[in-house]
Structures are given as C-alpha cells and as structure tokens.
C-alpha cells in the first residue's frame, strides 16, 4: 500500500521562558493508506501534539511531514486550512460541538469553509448522520443528546467531507463502554471503507482493534 503519511526526523519543541521544551524528538514512521493505527502512551508523552501536527492544526519545529507525497512543511494558513477542510476529519475526546447549532448545522460547518459549497450540502450531511445512526435527530441541539450521540455527531462532521485521514483523540475517553463500543464499531466500518484512521488512546482494549499500535514515551517511539 502507498504511504499516506511519511514522517522523517520530525521534532516539536516549545520555548517557555528561557527553557526549551522538547515534546517530540526525531520521529520516523509511515502510515499506509487504509491503515488503522493506535497511538498509545502516557499523559504528556506527546500523542496529542503528534496528532495535531499530522492534522495540520499545529506545526512541527523540524524534520519532514509528507502527506500523500506532499511536503506539509512551510505551508501558510490558507493552505493548511484547506488541507484540514479536504483531507482530515478530527474527532475529539470532548466532542467539540458548537452548542448553539443544531446537529445538522454542526455537521454542515465544514462546508462553510470548503471551496466547493454546493446545493446538496444538506443531503450529504443527512447521509453522514445516517451512517452514524442519527438521521432522526437533525434539529436537536447537542445539549439534548447523550455523550455517545454527541460523539457520533462529531464523527459525522469528521467524515462529511470524505477525508482520507481521520484523527481521533481519545474518542471513547468520555463514554461508557457501550457507547464507546458503538463509536469503535463506526470507526471500524469507516476503515473497512478505505479511510485511514489514527486513534490516540490509553485504553489497551481500544488499541487492540487497530491494525498496528505505536507507543510514545517522552516524545520518542518506544522500542
């Protein structure tokens, strides 16, 4: 399989006062198109930072990050935003839905920033919500949904633009086991349909559903 993600000597550091904090050091790895990878590690090991860099929400300090062969280093705000809009779907632990918008409007949100806004936006959103089993809750507000349902809305929003990469940061962390299981089933289904999925998790059980596990320790991959 062709590599969707290629990372070479990738590092991330922050300056806090006079101190230089190294979050990620010399990472080298590849993720093939269609893979389901679990990223594990203790709190503060740099998992979320790596996920944010791969999703172009954050920038790396040095090294190379190629997405489908394209070097993502040095891209400007417009190009990075377009990349997030087209290629990536984020799923967060805290769902991150806009509380004043309805379920449908939350899923519609990515289209506002896509260059190809079209008349069938509503139909595509309803289709995405149908795939996570929420086609009947279009006009509900997030506050009227359970945690599992909110996360399903977040998944619908992540997949509505048909991205190649889905980045999930502890998507089951705030859910009970039944709801968490449903979310993982949906991710499995998306992966079977060709999506590449990177999931950050503490949970060994969750990681076991991935085709490959990677473990970060202090910003490096554990041997």
């Amino acid at each position: 399989m062709a590599a969707l993600i290629e990372v070479e000597r990738l590092a991330k550091s922050y300056r806090r006062g006079a101190q230089e904090l190294e979050i990620l050091r010399d990472l080298d790895f590849r993720v093939a198109q269609g893979e389901f990878v679990a990223l594990m590690g203790a709190s503060g090991s740099g998992k979320s930072t790596l996920l944010n860099i791969l999703g172009c929400l954050d920038r790396h300090s040095s090294g190379r990050y190629l997405f489908a062969g394209r070097d993502m280093s040095g891209l400007g705000d417009e190009a990075l935003s377009l990349f997030r809009s087209r290629e990536v779907g984020f799923i967060f632990q805290g769902f991150n839905l806009v509380s004043q918008f309805s379920v449908l409007e939350n899923v519609e949100l990515p289209f506002l920033y896509a260059p190809d806004y079209c008349a069938d936006v509503r139909a595509r959103c309803i289709d995405a919500l149908g795939r996570v089993g929420l086609a009947a809750r279009l006009e509900h507000k997030p506050s009227e949904l359970s945690g599992g349902e909110m996360q399903r809305v977040a998944i619908a929003r992540a997949i509505v633009m048909l991205p190649r990469l889905i980045l999930a940061d502890e998507p089951t962390g705030n859910l009970d086991s039944v709801s968490g299981g449903q979310i993982l089933d949906i991710l499995d289904e998306l992966n079977r349909n060709g999506a590449t999925i990177l999931i950050v998790t503490h949970d060994v059980g969750v990681a076991a559903r991935a085709s490959r596990q990677m473990r970060l320790e202090d910003g490096r991959f554990a041997r």
Partner: peptide
C-alpha cells in the same frame, strides 16, 4: 474561543 478552535479544525482560515 472553543467554537473558534472547532471552526479552525474543520477548515476555517484566519480570514474566515
């Protein structure tokens, strides 16, 4: 702020 972060995550540019 959180809503702004969400919008940025789904593709909004600074201009947006």
């Amino acid at each position: 702020r959180r809503e702004i972060g969400i919008r940025r995550a789904v593709g909004a540019t600074q201009r947006h």
